[in-house]
Amino acid sequence: MPEWMTPALWIAAAAVLGTIALGLVRVERGPSNGDRMLAAQLLGTGAVAVLLLLARATDAPALLDVALVLALLACVAGAVFVRRIGVQPPERDEGRGPTRATEDGS
């Protein structure tokens, strides 16, 4: 592979990390818990992409296994969230936005 490839891969990895930072803004602001959960989903994919790029940039095939594990587990948090808590409309009142148990029949 041409020698300019490795620095290019490092820049790509840093770029994906940048998109992860953008996603973190949604996690911070996301009015409803559903927004935060989907942002976490996006960040999981970003982390997988970074790992694949690093595997090539640092020539470490083991990182593919780490990416494989993350890919397999990408849906666990989401599944637990949906099953146990569920999406709730964002809180209108000021101050704390505590997780609100879904009222039945909403």
Partner: peptide, 11 residues
């Protein structure tokens, strides 16, 4: 995403 969307619909 499907699960979250469905849950959002319910909410």
């Amino acid at each position: 995403c499907y699960l979250v969307a469905r849950s959002a619909l319910r909410a």
